[in-house]
Simulated assay, not measured.
Amino acid sequence: MFKKFVSRMITGATVVTTACAAMATAPISVAAQEEGDTVRIGSLFELSGAVAAYGQTQSNAIKMAVEEINEAGGISGKQVEIVEFDTKSDDTEAAVLATRLASQENVSVIIGPATTSQMQAAIPIVNEFEVPLVSPSVTNTDIVFDDDGNVHPFAYRTSWPNSFQGAGIGKFAYENLNAEKTVVIYDNSSDYGVGLYDNFQENYEGEIVSVETVQPSDSDFSAIVTNLMAQEFDSIVILAFYQTAGPLVKQIREMGFEQPIVGSNGFGNDIIYELALPENMNDVYYASLYPILEDDEFVQKYQEKFNSDPDMFAALAYDTVYIVKQAIEQAGSTDPIAVNEALENLGSFEGITGSFIYDENHNPTKNVVSMIEIQGAEETGVHEVVFD
Results as ranks from 00 to 15, higher is better:
residue 44 L to Y: 09
residue 327 A to D: 05
residue 74 G to P: 05
residue 68 E to G: 08
residue 277 L to Q: 09
residue 71 E to Y: 04
residue 13 A to D: 15
residue 61 A to H: 07
residue 111 I to M: 09
residue 135 S to A: 02
residue 157 R to H: 04
residue 344 E to V: 05
residue 254 E to N: 12
residue 85 F to K: 14
residue 135 S to L: 04
residue 354 G to C: 01
residue 323 I to F: 00
residue 262 V to W: 01
residue 263 G to K: 02
residue 17 T to I: 14
residue 334 T to N: 13
residue 368 V to P: 03
residue 333 S to L: 08
residue 204 Y to N: 11
residue 132 P to F: 01
residue 360 E to M: 10
residue 223 A to G: 11
residue 48 S to I: 01
residue 351 G to M: 10
residue 33 Q to E: 10
residue 275 L to S: 02
residue 164 F to K: 07
residue 386 V to A: 05
residue 156 Y to K: 01
residue 351 G to D: 03
residue 319 D to T: 05
residue 76 S to T: 13
residue 265 N to A: 07
residue 299 V to Y: 08
residue 338 A to M: 11
residue 317 A to W: 13
residue 278 P to E: 10
residue 245 A to S: 14
residue 259 Q to R: 07
residue 1 M to H: 07
residue 140 N to G: 01
residue 243 Q to H: 14
residue 312 M to T: 05
residue 326 Q to C: 13
residue 19 A to K: 15
residue 13 A to H: 13
residue 143 I to G: 06
residue 162 N to F: 08
residue 81 E to Q: 14
residue 72 A to F: 04
residue 194 V to N: 06
residue 187 D to H: 06
residue 349 F to S: 00
residue 55 G to H: 11
residue 285 Y to F: 11
residue 370 S to L: 07
residue 182 T to L: 15
residue 157 R to T: 05
residue 340 N to H: 09
residue 298 F to D: 13
residue 17 T to P: 12
residue 309 D to E: 12
residue 135 S to K: 02
residue 263 G to H: 00
residue 37 D to K: 15
residue 355 S to C: 04
residue 51 V to E: 06
residue 346 L to Q: 03
residue 117 S to F: 10
residue 353 T to P: 02
residue 317 A to K: 07
residue 196 L to G: 00
residue 55 G to P: 11
residue 36 G to H: 12
residue 196 L to F: 02
residue 361 N to A: 11
residue 78 K to R: 15
residue 127 N to K: 02
residue 330 Q to K: 15
residue 117 S to C: 00
residue 339 V to N: 02
residue 374 I to T: 03
residue 123 I to M: 07
residue 143 I to H: 11
residue 161 P to V: 10
residue 26 A to I: 10
residue 304 E to F: 09
residue 73 G to N: 13
residue 298 F to A: 12
residue 292 I to S: 14
residue 366 K to D: 02
residue 350 E to C: 00
residue 108 S to A: 11
residue 21 A to V: 13
residue 11 T to C: 12
residue 118 Q to P: 01
residue 306 F to M: 06
residue 310 P to E: 00
residue 68 E to C: 07
residue 99 T to G: 12
residue 54 Y to K: 04
residue 158 T to V: 06
residue 313 F to A: 09
residue 331 A to E: 03
residue 16 V to I: 14
residue 78 K to T: 11
residue 109 V to E: 12
residue 297 E to A: 12
residue 181 K to D: 01
residue 156 Y to H: 01
residue 177 L to Y: 05
residue 172 F to W: 10
residue 180 E to D: 12
residue 55 G to Q: 10
residue 55 G to I: 11
residue 285 Y to V: 04
residue 147 D to C: 00
residue 232 E to A: 13
residue 372 I to W: 02
residue 239 L to M: 00
residue 329 E to D: 01
residue 268 G to M: 06
residue 220 D to G: 07
residue 347 G to K: 09
residue 378 E to W: 04
residue 323 I to P: 00
residue 283 D to A: 05
residue 257 F to P: 08
residue 116 T to I: 03
residue 122 A to H: 05
residue 324 V to K: 08
residue 48 S to K: 03
residue 317 A to V: 04
residue 104 Q to S: 14
residue 373 E to K: 15
residue 105 E to P: 09
residue 380 T to P: 09
residue 67 E to T: 04
residue 77 G to C: 06
residue 180 E to S: 10
residue 23 M to P: 07
residue 113 P to L: 03
residue 264 S to I: 04
residue 119 M to N: 06
residue 316 L to A: 10
residue 363 N to F: 13
residue 122 A to L: 02
residue 142 D to G: 01
residue 203 N to D: 02
residue 168 G to R: 10
residue 207 E to Q: 06
